[in-house]
Nucleic acid binder design. Structure first.
Lengths: 407, 407
DNA sequence: GAATTAGTTTATCGAGTCAACAAACTGCCA
DNA sequence: TGGCAGTTTGTTGACTCGATAAACTAATTC
């Protein structure tokens, strides 16, 4: 029974799966909706829709909410996803914490927890802690005697989807940890493992500002610069899951030295350290600024700079402006490469996106010549702190509501 | 009957189509091959395979070639694609020519033609000429009373796949020409329209050095620098078909002015003009070189520089070396973004890839730190002059042998 | 002739379609 | 106010298509 890799096929059940997923997809997008409307939306026969709906109500994934009359004719029985069908659990492994989120089937907040990680990041210890927290969240869930649809884990590192391994997580000091398999075995549930930026991108696609878009670039601006690519409504992970590492594209071969050993990486120009550098340099030059004290006491922080800029501080404004300009230059390259409809800016820095986006947009417009190139929209992410865990929920959603080809 | 856009579904014939395509795919890759082996390869039941094979023999897309015994047991009846099943026709609209290629069903050369385009590039006139050439090629084909599987047309410009329009072809002076629809109407055959670099990428995927790879970057190095992206075995075109315009990613914000109005575009560093510039500058500095005469008489050409370099000319070698180095820097960025398994270098310059690839590879290795990043393979394209027309054949192949989700 | 492998025949099943119908409403007119 | 026409929703039953499984025939080697 050597199944093929390119398509999932072999039996007719495939058709049922496709159509079931198709109906779930539309239910999620258009709920509340009737069987008749679903038949219209999907092109499936009314009979087929009824049959699939019967199955789905059987597994309690959807439910009927009363009839709703709309003009002449028999009133429609409206359907929607059943929030109580079960739970979705998502975890983020941070540099010094583990965060957990549990939602119901309609992705509504239910429960949250966060624990610090004790140094050092011995992978076995962290895994133990993670498994404990997950088991706790699951047993909490099972009290309600409900299903757990999936568990997602986001990590700050490179993940190989094929093998379900964390290949490399510099900030944790991890190398080739087969996390997905271990968790799946430990919890006996479907586990999704991915890089946190990829997950965050999916989060914006399903629940955030990227809803309805098919080609999206997501960037996280924090201490570093990461990213995720949505191509054709699917997460693009590249050959081994390394795709989207925008932070280390070379922007200026003679630029600042980057931690990676090269010069002028995107993240040397657009990141928190880059922002602080601008401020420090200005202070060193003696420019008047509200931020002088923060620099002197080495207490520079993002909110401080943003506040100053918002209240008109020239040094703060200039710092954001030059980040915004560099961002625009980099985005122009990415647009030439990808031609996305939407670019989403996430990460902590996106909380001050109003200080950067106009300038970035201006730079983009100048560089791309809109009369021969459709300009993508630039938008700030909906999620910042909880981007990764919401992305985890979205990753499980993606398994349920989206049909993927394998391989 | 509003069919849905996300999946092709609606009736069970979908499964038949999938499985038929699946079998054709394996037949192409593994021919000659028996029914039993196909059953193994695809995971489909022997009966199903037999039934599909019966259909395919009925439409004469495949044929039986005698039995072949291999040890004990009944000898297998081997199958292969039927070269005479029909024809595939491919055209390239160049700046001053139209090239045509006709192959049989197994993509073997059959017939070729090339006509100059008379200035100016009035789109109506060019289209007339194209239609004439295509009709000629088709009627030639129909003498054999065979099927034409499809017609592909590659253009040097931006193509919107959704609408089948040439949005913008600067070198032809074209704007929003609905070429696909016009040809489909005129010829009453399935027509595929795409950018020439995209097509060339598909050509390498199906017939060239990229066979068997799933994530590939293709670059054409000529007067400009173009590209195509293969993601997950499919051509990635972006939102409106603009993806893969690698030529205008910014490599150095203080670099040379590019025709596009920006500075330091990739194509100002890696292209034929860039190569010639290196040579001219060296000559102007008075460095000794075989190329001095060519520069003086303004007869500088690619083969000349390549020849000189191959025979040890220092200026020629240095010119290629600096192109190779810049190429490596740019590729490092692209690898960070895409994580491809393979990078293919095409275009005229790839004919001297042995003068650039080692240096580019070296630069790539230094920048990407192979111990934390799997290095992609770098390879010269199989096709240069005929890259576009072979790509056109591949584009038709892609319709026949690959299953695409719509939308 | 036994063993082995290839391919076909026959019966069955799963899933989608179509057409007809039952159900439940609105609206209009007597 | 009652009743029937018109309309839309959802279900039932007959049918079809395509995949599967098991048994069978076919053609070879040893």
């Amino acid at each position: 029974m050597m199944a093929d890799d390119r398509f999932r096929t072999g039996d007719q059940a495939l058709v049922r799966t496709i159509n079931q997923t198709l109906i779930l997809h539309h239910l999620r997008q258009t709920a509340p909706v009737s069987r008749a409307a679903l038949s219209e939306l999907t092109g499936l026969n009314k009979t087929t829709v009824s049959s699939i709906i019967r199955d789905l109500i059987g597994t309690s994934m959807i439910r009927e909410i009363g009839a709703q009359s709309g003009g002449a004719g028999r009133p429609a029985i409206m359907l929607e996803l059943n929030p109580d069908a079960g739970y979705i659990i998502s975890a983020e492994i941070g540099v010094d914490f583990i965060a957990l989120l549990r939602t119901n089937f309609t992705a509504e907040f239910q429960w949250q927890s966060r624990s610090p990680i004790r140094e050092p990041h011995d992978s076995a210890a962290v895994l133990n802690q993670l498994v404990g927290m997950l088991k706790n969240a699951i047993s909490n869930a099972l009290i309600g005697n409900r299903r757990v649809f999936g568990v997602a884990v986001g990590v700050p590192g490179l993940v190989d989807q094929q093998s379900g391994q964390v290949l490399f997580a510099p900030n944790l000091g991890w190398h080739t940890i087969p996390l997905e398999g271990m968790l799946a075995h430990e919890l006996d549930l479907p586990v999704s493992l991915d890089n946190e930026a990829n997950m965050a991108a999916l989060g914006e696609l399903y629940f955030g500002v990227a809803q309805g878009y098919k080609n999206v670039l997501y960037l996280t601006l924090d201490v570093g610069l990461g990213g995720g690519i949505i191509s054709n409504g699917q997460l693009f992970t590249g050959n081994a899951g390394f795709a989207g590492e925008f932070g280390h594209i070379t922007m200026d071969p003679h630029g600042k030295l980057c931690g990676c050993g090269n010069r002028g990486c995107f993240e040397t120009l657009v990141s928190l350290p880059a922002l602080y550098d601008h401020v420090r340099t200005a202070v060193a030059r003696g420019e008047p600024t509200l931020l002088a004290d923060l620099v002197r006491t080495d207490m520079l922080n993002f909110e401080g700079v943003a506040e100053a800029a918002r209240s008109g501080d020239q040094v703060g404004l200039a710092a954001f402006a030059s980040i915004g300009r560099a961002l625009g230059v980099g985005l122009a390259s990415l647009v030439n490469i990808f031609d996305p409809q939407l670019i989403v800016l996430g990460g902590e820095m996106s909380r001050a996106s109003e200080l950067m986006l106009p300038i970035a947009t201006e730079e983009l417009t100048v560089r791309l010549k809109p009369w021969q190139h459709p300009l993508p929209t630039l938008a700030a992410a909906r999620y910042t702190r909880d981007a990764c865990v919401m992305g985890g929920i979205a990753t499980v959603y993606d398994r349920i509501f989206n049909l993927h080809r394998r391989g």
